[in-house]
Amino acid sequence: MTAGFIKHQSHFRPGETMDNLVGAVTRRGLAVFLRLDHTAAAIQAGLDLRPTQLLVFGRAEGGTPLMQANQTIGVDLPLRALVWCDPADRTWIGYDDPLWLAARHGLTEGNPRHAAEALSLLVETCVLQAAGTDPSKPRGAL
């Protein structure tokens, strides 16, 4: 396991999980900057890759306070989430925890820490809903 990387198994196929994630982040006012299909790129290069997609998303109100405290965190922003299918045909969704990102850049106290906590909770909520594992909703209800 990679430090700071959180993953959850999804109850949906990869494409549906990613569609669910796009819906979850946009409903919360986050912008989707990029939806990258790594599998399609691999196919274009004549290579084989199980379903793998990356979503880049965020909003200035969440990331800017962190960058005001230490601009180096900008290398890790906007936020990203990966959806992939493993060799056992299980779908996963994962992301770098904003709290871990903040700690990586020395933002462990005060307002930057609070901003990272809020982002961490927001991303976890979106990911759990996308995977169909949000405990506050019946399975499959997004």
Rank of each mutant, 00 (worst) to 15 (best):
Met1Cys: 15
Met1Lys: 13
Thr2Phe: 15
Thr2Ser: 14
Ala3Thr: 11
Ile6Glu: 10
Lys7His: 11
Lys7Gln: 14
His8Gln: 13
His8Cys: 02
His8Met: 06
Gln9Met: 13
Gln9Asn: 06
Ser10Ala: 08
Ser10Ile: 03
His11Gly: 10
Phe12Asp: 02
Gly15Leu: 13
Glu16Ser: 14
Glu16Pro: 05
Met18Cys: 04
Asp19Ala: 15
Asn20Met: 03
Leu21Ile: 03
Val22Gly: 01
Gly23Ile: 04
Val25Tyr: 00
Val25Arg: 00
Thr26Tyr: 05
Arg27Trp: 01
Arg27Ile: 00
Arg27Asp: 11
Arg28His: 07
Arg28Phe: 02
Leu30Asn: 04
Leu30Trp: 08
Val32Ile: 05
Leu34Ser: 13
Leu36Met: 12
Asp37Asn: 15
Asp37Pro: 09
Thr39Leu: 05
Ala41His: 15
Ala41Thr: 15
Ala45Ile: 08
Ala45Trp: 03
Gly46Ala: 06
Leu47Ser: 09
Leu47Thr: 05
Leu47Asp: 14
Leu47Val: 07
Asp48Gly: 01
Asp48Lys: 04
Arg50Ala: 13
Pro51Leu: 05
Thr52Gln: 05
Thr52Asn: 10
Leu54Gln: 11
Phe57Gly: 01
Phe57Asn: 06
Phe57Trp: 11
Gly58Phe: 06
Gly58Asn: 07
Arg59Val: 08
Arg59Phe: 08
Arg59Ser: 12
Ala60Arg: 05
Glu61Tyr: 10
Gly62Arg: 02
Gly63Lys: 02
Thr64Gln: 10
Thr64Arg: 03
Pro65Ile: 09
Leu66Ala: 11
Leu66Phe: 07
Met67His: 14
Gln68Met: 14
Asn70Ser: 08
Gln71Ile: 12
Thr72Ser: 13
Gly74Met: 08
Val75Trp: 06
Val75Tyr: 11
Val75Asn: 10
Val75Cys: 13
Leu77Met: 06
Leu77His: 04
Pro78Arg: 03
Pro78Gln: 07
Leu82Lys: 02
Leu82Cys: 05
Trp84Tyr: 14
Cys85Thr: 15
Asp86Met: 03
Pro87Val: 10
Ala88Gly: 12
Thr91Asp: 07
Trp92Val: 12
Trp92Ile: 09
Ile93Asp: 01
Asp96Asn: 12
Asp97Gln: 04
Pro98Arg: 01
Pro98Tyr: 01
Pro98Met: 04
Leu99His: 04
Leu101His: 06
Arg104Ala: 06
His105Ala: 12
Gly106Asp: 09
Thr108Arg: 15
Thr108Ala: 14
Glu109Ile: 09
Gly110Val: 12
Asn111Pro: 07
Asn111Glu: 14
Asn111Cys: 00
Asn111Leu: 09
Asn111Gln: 13
Pro112Trp: 00
Pro112Lys: 00
His114Pro: 03
His114Gln: 15
His114Ser: 10
His114Val: 15
Ala115Tyr: 05
Ala116Met: 09
Glu117Cys: 04
Glu117Arg: 11
Ala118Val: 10
Ser120Arg: 02
Leu121Cys: 07
Leu122Cys: 04
Val123Lys: 00
Glu124His: 08
Thr125Leu: 07
Leu128Asn: 02
Gln129Thr: 08
Gln129Met: 10
Ala130Trp: 03
Gly132Glu: 03
Thr133Phe: 01
Thr133Ser: 11
Asp134Ile: 08
Asp134Lys: 10
Asp134Pro: 09
Pro135Ala: 13
Pro135Asp: 12
Ser136Lys: 14
Gly140Asn: 03
Gly140Ile: 01
Gly140Met: 01
Ala141Leu: 12
Leu142Glu: 03
Leu142Asp: 04
Leu142Trp: 09
